[in-house]
Amino acid sequence: MPEHNIVPRDGNAMQKYGLVIAFAAICAVLSIRSPAFLTPQNAINVLRQISINAILAVGVTYVILTGGIDLSLGSVVAVTGVLAATFAHPDTYPLAVPIAVGILGGVLIGVLNGLVITRFRVAPFIATLGMMTIARGGALILSGGRPVSNLAASFNFIGNGSVLRIPIPILILAGVFLVSRFILRRTTFGRYVYAVGGNEEAARASGINTHGIKVASYAICAGLAGLAGIVQASRITTGQPNAGISYELDAIAAVVIGGTSLSGGIGSVTGTLLGALLIGTLNNGLDLLNVSSYYQQVVKGLIIIGAVILDRRKRSR
């Protein structure tokens, strides 16, 4: 079985190994400096901490692969969290209802984003910037500006429970990652996502419904943001209309560090997951070393810029 069928071997291998090496190096340094770092409990901590960001990042990978961007994700997390919470009060609806409402709410927003971008030819940056404000307003309207609390225990279990001692958010992330990896590598839809981002005109000339592919990508992206919104609301046992501010930027950062090109067509969700892990591990390690969170922000910024410079270098060769 060929290792990777779509994206060429060399660039991809380099990019992956580069990230893996960087990740291993950070882990090595941290485990020497802090004995608490390399413990199973801490590994689970890191994974749980990154799960929401990583789910969002996997989602926005679809959009970025098509050459687009989605800035509305943080607001989608808030509005879907509030939406799910309003259906999650004890003894009202079965658990499936808030989950379905949260995800479908996200999908609907994504479809709207996609339609505005394809039908009305609004630049993705602008369209989703608008949606960012609209969805935030929606969250405030739905909740009346107040947190939606008093949620059912079954709902709160999603963000706080564990199965076989593994926190559920990690299991959700694992599912999202594996399914997305399969979709992008093995399905015709995944192939078309890469083609649309790599050269939209050529994709169209190949008979691909490029608009459909884009709308579907935004829908998947926002749908996953809806899922993240549910996890978030459940985790804090509240539907918070002010949740998720600037989450979209953290997600995009993970994608970029993971080697996905912002101009589309190149990248993978594996890279994205590694990117999210890298950020999460670094935050965790710097915490353990008692480095002030002020410095952590500076470090994160430097990594984003460094990753892009490396990427540019690689491609200009």
């Binding site: 779509i6 192939r191 050269n199 005109e201 000339a205």
Partner: peptide, 20 residues
């Protein structure tokens, strides 16, 4: 500009309009 998807493999480019 209109023929190939440069960042994809030769293989993916050839099958792009006939993946079915």
């Amino acid at each position: 500009t209109t023929g190939l998807v440069p960042c994809l493999s030769l293989r993916a480019n050839i099958t792009l309009s006939n993946l079915d």
